[in-house]
Design a protein around this nucleic acid. Structure first.
Lengths: 104, 104
DNA sequence: TTGATATATCGTTATTTATCGATATACTGA
DNA sequence: TCAGTATATCGATAAATAACGATATATCAA
């Protein structure tokens, strides 16, 4: 072996760490898992994720702020869906690598 | 659509979140990136990651504590290497999905 | 307009995590 | 044994994050 290591750049590492930090929360992982099926309004996400609506808003706001989700108001409901192509890949990675299995 | 969503279990989500939390740090990502090539002793890891040896120890301890790395003393050096098959997959996932590119 | 539903934000407190300096332990070679 | 190198741990402070209640805004239907 000769030459330098081929390493990820600092900028990329910082960006990736930020992304992982946002996703390093069980409820937010669950939200993505839910949204991988289709878009849902906030109260539905809250119900499916078994958290309160206001905490759900918080999580959604965080993820939207990082560009991971987008939202669209229709009537009094706001529908969220996955915006970042990172997320399905990440969840897929977790399923494959972290002993993550589907349950019914 | 009929039937329940197929969701990841709470236990799995907690485990995955813990794993991600550990990896959600630029220096620790760099450490894994370095160790993907081969094992290294602490001071080399510190040098390659441009951090102090004692902070490097901290990071290594954290990751080892989660079963992500293993270590082996040889002489006065302690060599660390990747233990978890999650990690290369995760880094690979970051390379592919998070706009992560190699630099020389 | 009023009441009900849905979503969002704000402020406080609690908890966790990071950083850094100091110090301790382990090993080697002289 | 001593000096020097390598690794590890500990304690304090700082910073970031989470959790929760309270309150605010938006929309619709009556």
């Amino acid at each position: 072996m000769a030459g330098k290591l081929s390493l990820l750049s600092i900028d990329v590492l910082n960006g990736a760490a930020e992304c992982l930090k946002v996703m390093a929360h069980p409820v937010r992982l669950r939200i993505v898992d839910v949204l991988m099926q289709k878009e849902f309004p906030v109260h539905e996400i809250a119900r499916l994720c078994e958290t309160s609506p206001d905490q759900t808003c918080e999580h959604l706001r965080l993820m939207k702020g990082r560009g991971l989700l987008t939202s669209e108001r229709r009537g009094r409901r706001v529908y969220y869906k996955i915006a970042s192509s990172n997320l399905p890949g990440l969840i897929e990675c977790l399923r494959k690598n972290c002993g993550v299995k589907k349950i019914r």
